[in-house]
Design a protein around this nucleic acid. Structure first.
Lengths: 346, 346
DNA sequence: TTGTAGGCGTTATCAA
DNA sequence: TTGATAACGCCTACAA
C-alpha cells in the first residue's frame, strides 16, 4: 500500500525531492538529474531553469537514493587502532583533504587493536556500501579477509608493508625504518643498544620494528640480549619507566632506541631527573618526527616518516580505482621513503 | 527499461540481496527484514531458517536501501576545524565509542577554521542524510544555520558555549575557564599577567578566552595592557616565540598564561634555553591537560578540561534525540566542569 | 537534447 | 505471525 500519494509534491521532512524541482522547472526528473550530475549534457536554457528551481526550493539531493540507484558510493571507510593517537592524525588529514576535493567522505572508526573488532567494523562499513576501505592494521581475521574479497571493493592497508597484502598498500616499512635507525646507532659507535617498543600483541608494526632491530644487530655483529628488548604502553610515563628499567637491569647499556610514539621524550625527561647525561651516559633515539622531539634539549634523533603522504597517496590510489576503474593498480604496493634525522641525543 | 530481470536472484556484485535470502529460506523479504531488525516479532522457527540462509549466503544488509526506505539514518556527521589537533582526539574518541555501541557511524571532515567550508560540509552531510550533526565551531554562516534548521536534524555544538545556540550544546565555557586561570594567577600574587592565545579570527574559542582573561584582570584590579595580549600559531615553536616576544616588549611581566594547545611547553623550553627561571623570573600557565605539561620540569600549571566527556555526552544526547525522540532535550545546554591544576610553574 | 519506464534493495502498510 | 504491494528518491537504459 502506498505510504504517500505519489502526486504529493509537498515536503514532509523539510527535504524536497527531485520530483518537486522537476515540476517547478517544468521538466522531467531526468533533466534535473542531468543538470546536477552531467551539466554538459543539458542545454543552457534547461540548466538555468532547473538551477533556479533548485535554489528556490532549497533542494538537497539525497545521496542515499543516488548511491543506491547508481550503485556508486562516495564514502570511504577508515579503521584505525585508536583515534586518540597523534601519530595517525597526519595520515587522516592527508586522506581527508584529497577525498574532500573529489566529493568523497570519510567514515572513521577505531578497532582498539582488536582484529575481531576490526572485522565487525568492516562488516558495518560494507553494509554502508563504502566505495573503499583503508585499514591501518595489517592483521585481519580470515572472515574479514573473506568479506572484503567478496565485496570486491578496493582496500588500502597503510600501517605497515605486510607479507601478504589484502589488496593495495601505501606505507613505509616498519622493519626497514627500525633497521636503519639501529644501523645508524651502530655506526655512531654504540655497542649496547637497547630497544623499546609498544606492546606487540596484535600490533604487527611493533613486531616488525623488533625484527628490523634484530636484523641490524646481526649485521653489526652485536649479540642480542633479551634484557635489552622491552615493551611498554603509550605516553611519556611509559618512556620514563622503560629507560629506568633498562638502566637498572643492564647498566652497561649505552643507547636506547625507543621505537614508538613519544617514549623517547619520556625517557629523556627521566634521564634529566636522574642526572643521566644524554647522550654521554646513554644515547636516545626515537621513531616518528613528533614536534616535541625537536624542541627538547638535547633534541632527539629520530625517523621522519611520511605520515601525511601516506594519507594523500592512499586517497589518490583509492580514487583511481573507484573513479577511473584503474584495475592495473590492484595489488600495488607503494613503499614510501623515510629518513633518519640525526640530532643531539646520539 | 529494466536494468536487471527481477527474477534474477544471482549476485553480480558479490553482494546478495534480501530477496536471495528470502528465496533460500522460503519466506518473504518482510520476514527476513523482521528477523534482522525486530527478531521478537518472528517465530523461532522462521528466525532460525532465515538466519541459516543469511549465513549460507553470506548476506550483508544494504544500509543505503534500508535508510532510504525507513527514512532513518545511523550516521552522525562531525566537523572539526582541524583533524590533526590532538586536543579534539579525546572528544572524537568519546563520541565514537558511544555511537558504535548503538550501531551508529561517524562521518568526519575538517573545515580548516573556515565557516564557508563548514557550510559546504554541512550541505554534503545533509545530502548523505546524517541523523545528527556535531560541530566544534560555534560560528556558522547564516545559510548553514538555515539549512540545518530546515533539515530538522539534531545538532550539538561542542567547542564552546555560544550565546545563541543552534540547538544543543555540550561543552565547557572557554570564557569561564580562562577567567578561572587568570584569577588563579592573580591570587598567587602575580601582578603583570600576560595572555597568549591562538589566532582568534574565526575562532570564537580564542575570542572567549581573551574575554575571560580581561574580565579577570578587571576583577583583580589590574590594568589591561595591549602589549601583554598576544596571538600566535600552533606548536612548540609558537610558544617559544611568544614568550620571547613578551619578555622583550614588557620586561616587567611576571606571568604568562598560554591559552592554547602546547604553547606553554614551547614557552618553557625557550625559558630554559635563555635561563629565565620558571616560575622565578616568569610563571607559566597553560590550557588543557596535555600529558607533556605534567612531565616537563617544572611541571606546568594548567586547566583540566572534560574533552572525553564532551564526546560521550554529545553522543548520548544525540542518540536520545534520534532514537528516543527526546524532544524535550531540544536546545539544552550542558556546561561541563573544568578544573585548575596547580603545578610547579606558578 | 529530453523524456519514459522501471529498477536499485529495503521497509511501511495493510490484509490474511 | 506472515505476506503482498507499493513506496523511499534517484539513476540506467532506451526511445523519441
Amino acid at each position: 500500500m502506498p505510504r504517500r500519494s505519489s502526486e504529493d509534491s509537498s515536503k514532509r521532512n523539510g527535504s524536497a525531492r527531485m520530483r518537486d524541482v522537476a515540476v517547478r522547472a517544468g521538466v522531467s526528473t531526468m533533466t534535473v538529474s542531468r543538470v546536477l550530475n552531467e551539466p554538459g549534457k543539458v542545454s543552457e536554457e534547461m540548466r538555468e531553469r532547473v538551477l533556479k528551481a533548485v535554489r528556490e526550493i532549497g533542494y538537497l539531493p539525497n545521496h542515499l537514493a543516488g548511491s543506491l540507484s547508481s550503485n556508486r558510493s562516495t564514502t570511504i571507510g577508515l579503521i584505525v587502532p585508536s583515534i586518540d593517537n597523534s601519530i595517525y592524525t597526519q595520515t587522516v588529514k592527508g586522506l581527508s583533504e584529497v577525498l574532500k576535493r573529489s566529493g568523497f567522505q570519510l567514515m572513521i572508526a577505531e578497532s582498539g587493536y582488536d582484529p575481531n573488532e576490526e572485522e565487525e567494523l568492516i562488516t558495518v562499513f560494507l553494509s554502508h556500501r563504502v566505495g573503499g576501505l583503508v585499514l591501518h592494521s595489517t592483521e585481519h581475521t580470515p572472515q574479514a579477509i573473506e568479506k572484503i574479497r567478496k565485496s570486491g571493493i578496493p582496500v588500502v592497508e597503510n600501517g605497515n608493508i605486510p607479507k601478504e597484502p589484502l589488496d593495495m598498500v601505501v606505507s613505509y616499512s616498519n622493519r626497514d625504518a627500525s633497521y636503519a635507525m639501529t644501523m645508524h646507532l651502530g655506526r655512531l659507535g654504540y655497542r649496547k643498544i637497547a630497544f623499546a617498543s609498544l606492546y606487540s600483541v596484535h600490533n604487527d608494526r611493533s613486531q616488525d620494528r623488533l625484527k628490523g632491530y634484530l636484523a641490524a644487530l646481526k649485521q653489526l655483529g652485536h649479540e642480542p640480549d633479551p634484557r635489552m628488548v622491552l615493551e611498554t604502553g603509550r605516553g611519556l610515563a611509559a618512556g620514563a619507566e622503560v629507560v629506568a628499567r633498562v638502566m637498572q637491569s643492564v647498566p652497561e647499556v649505552d643507547a636506547l632506541f625507543c621505537a614508538g610514539e613519544v617514549l623517547a621524550a619520556g625517557a629523556l625527561f627521566e634521564c634529566q631527573r636522574r642526572n643521566w647525561s644524554v647522550p654521554g651516559r646513554i644515547a636516545l633515539a626515537s621513531f616518528d618526527d613528533v614536534d616535541l622531539l625537536r624542541h627538547v634539549s638535547p633534541s632527539i634523533t629520530t625517523l621522519r616518516l611520511p605520515r601525511y603522504d601516506i594519507g594523500e597517496r592512499t586517497a589518490r590510489i583509492l580514487l583511481s580505482r573507484i573513479i577511473d576503474g584503474a584495475d592495473h593498480l590492484r595489488g600495488s604496493v607503494v613503499d614510501l621513503k623515510f629518513e633518519v634525522i640525526q640530532r643531539e641525543s646520539t
